[in-house]
């Protein structure tokens, strides 16, 4: 984990120390984060191909902008170069695997904590499973997407990607935002 995460990020309990933590965080191992941008005129077919051939348990396809996707995976079985070969002629692929730190965040108070940083509406009626937001968290660019709710949890689960150089500042803000609910940072790296 030392290899993947800045030193500010350390497992443990932050903020309110008693009771069940309102916010739970664990670092996600990033085996692949690739930016896939459709070649001119290829966006429509590419969208269908991505969903059909990539989106699933191992790889997540995230719509970032028109004709622009992120392919995210904990596994490094496939590289950005592999994807470039796969989509030669229909998309340009850029390797961003090391560009972001990705956190898995959840817990019963996660929405309240995020409301202190993000200017967007995360109400479950509005921001649904599978939705992606390219937005800011206290002036820092982030990409947030909602996972399927965990079977055991009574709270939404999100993944949040933040640029590596900004992670220290982001993390200070996040811990401050989650402190009043108690924030538990898991030593585990997901998955």
């Amino acid at each position: 984990m030392a290899e993947t995460l800045p030193t500010h990020f350390a497992p443990g309990r932050y903020g309110k120390a008693d009771g069940r933590p309102g916010v739970q965080v664990c670092a996600r191992r990033i085996g692949l984060l690739a930016s896939v941008i459709a070649r001119r005129g290829a966006a429509k077919t590419l969208a269908a191909t991505l969903e059909r051939e990539l989106d699933g348990d191992v790889l997540t396809v995230l719509g970032i902008a028109p004709g622009h996707w992120w392919i995210e995976s904990a596994s490094s079985a496939r590289s950005a170069d592999d994807l470039q070969t796969m989509f030669e002629g229909s998309a340009s692929v850029f390797d961003l695997t090391d560009s972001r730190v990705v956190l898995e965040i959840g817990g019963p108070r996660i929405r309240e904590a995020l409301a202190k940083m993000l200017p967007i509406d995360l109400h479950p009626w509005v921001f649904r499973t599978g939705d992606v937001a390219v937005t800011i968290a206290s002036h820092i660019g982030v990409t947030l997407w909602r996972m399927a709710d965990a079977q055991t949890a009574d709270a939404p689960q999100y993944r949040l990607a933040v640029a590596r150089s900004y992670f220290g500042s982001f993390w200070r803000g996040f811990v401050a935002s989650a402190a009043e609910y108690g924030c538990e940072v898991s030593p585990e790296v997901s998955p």
Binding site: P6, S138, A163, S165
Partner: peptide, 18 residues
């Protein structure tokens, strides 16, 4: 809000910062 002192604005750290 949170943006005071060292958090006045976000800071970017280089890969060799540590």
């Amino acid at each position: 809000g949170h943006h005071r002192g060292p958090d006045f604005r976000p800071t970017r750290l280089t890969p060799s910062h540590e």
